[in-house]
Design a protein around this nucleic acid. Structure first.
Length: 360
DNA sequence: TCTGGGGTCCTAGGACCC
DNA sequence: TCTGGGGTCCTAGGACCC
């Protein structure tokens, strides 16, 4: 989209900036390992541990390597690819610096370590601020980022992804539908591979086609979601930037083993570790959980979950562990090889809320 | 060829209650 | 012979996101 400087600022009913760091994990690594600059590099799990790529350098992307790809496949595409693990303390440090800059400009909604929305509605010229923000992030963290500015979150997000890396895309109010029209439906957040596949079957590939398609035909496939989907393809999205992300709903850990496991003691020790760390997270948040859920993936990748709820919430490691063990024993014959074991809790509640019910 | 980990939200069926 | 109708909670699975 053309970046028009002399638009009057009052044309922005709402101004939303979306900032998306470029190859964030890789670039944070390079900050601390300048010797790796220029290499085909990826951050992710090791190939012999069934790892996947979390982030790939632009050099690695030349070989077709992308995130979520199994590290083994990545190495086949590029045998001299260097794969390093994520350094979470460095990643969180850099993330905090970026978010601190954003907060100076308006209320922010943090979506992950490397992505956030900023509400620039109160600015007299949001387009000027958008550029300033990207420059400051680069100057003060030396990390590249892309930004999108639009009148809605939906369009701002598509815009930030439009011209990566180090892109800066502004979609002025009224230009939303035209901006989206030529792009594939997959750019719309919420339309994943399944939905896109179903749309292709009725001949819809681009946002423009979705926007102009027959609503009735769409309703046959998607029911009451059809109208909303079509609106989104037109760039209509009334969600506001909201810094309050609300309470956590669940806490979970899971572990894919480097080799499938059917040793009871090994499985139990993993459950115990996961129960311990979940218990710690609950205590740190001063919460208790009512539901405990076990996830099992067999060697053939079939995956299922089984859960148990209890009347009284708990944050106790032993109670979580013992419940998990009961579920495991009910669902595992003792011979089948297990590829992944996961443990999670939900039905979270802060005990203080419960006490209020006693009439104090 | 091999498929991570941490989340959210939605749907659908069954149990249970009034 | 025909088998209400809501509402809520629980369980399981699936789509999707980063």
């Amino acid at each position: 989209m053309a970046d028009v400087e002399d638009q009057p600022s009052n044309i922005w009913p709402q101004a939303v900036l979306h900032l998306d760091m470029d190859a964030f994990f890789v670039n944070v690594h390079l900050l601390h390992h300048p010797e790796d600059v220029g290499l085909p590099l990826a951050v992710g799990g090791q190939p012999d541990h069934r790892g996947v790529i979390a982030s790939a350098s632009y050099e690695a992307r030349q070989f077709g390597i992308h995130s979520a790809m199994p590290s083994k496949s990545a190495l086949r595409l590029c045998p001299h690819l260097k794969i390093v693990g994520s350094n979470w303390s460095d990643i969180r440090d850099s993330s905090r610096k970026v978010m601190d800059i954003l907060k100076e400009y308006g209320s922010i909604e943090r979506m992950s370590v490397d992505e956030a929305y900023v509400d620039l509605s109160d600015a007299s010229d949001p387009t000027l601020l958008a550029k300033e923000i990207r420059r400051r992030v680069k100057d003060e963290t030396t990390l590249p980022a892309s930004i999108g500015l639009a009148a809605s979150k939906l369009v701002a997000k598509v815009a930030s992804d439009f011209d990566k890396p180090e892109g800066s895309t502004i979609v002025h109010p009224g230009e939303e539908a035209a901006f989206l029209a030529p792009q594939p439906v997959r750019v719309i957040s919420g339309i994943g591979p399944k939905t896109a596949g179903r749309l292709i079957k009725i001949g819809i590939k681009s946002c423009g086609q979705l926007a102009n398609s027959d609503l009735g035909a769409l309703q046959v496939l998607f029911g009451r979601h059809a109208e909303n989907m079509q609106n989104r393809a037109r760039g209509i999205d009334i969600r506001r930037v909201s810094s309050d992300r609300g309470q956590r709903k669940s806490i979970s850990h899971e572990r894919t083993f480097s080799q499938d496991v059917n040793e009871p003691e090994e499985l139990k020790s993993h459950l115990q570790k996961m129960a311990g760390s979940i218990s710690n997270s609950l205590k740190k948040r001063k919460m208790v959980a009512h539901t405990i859920r076990l996830k099992i993936r067999w060697a053939d990748f079939t995956t299922f979950t089984r859960q148990m709820s209890r009347e009284i919430g708990t944050d106790d490691e032993l109670q979580i562990y013992e419940t998990a063990l009961i579920i495991l024993e009910r669902n595992w014959g003792g011979k089948q090889k297990i590829r992944l074991l996961g443990l999670g809790v939900s039905g979270l509640e802060s005990p203080i809320v419960r006490q209020k019910g006693f009439g104090f």
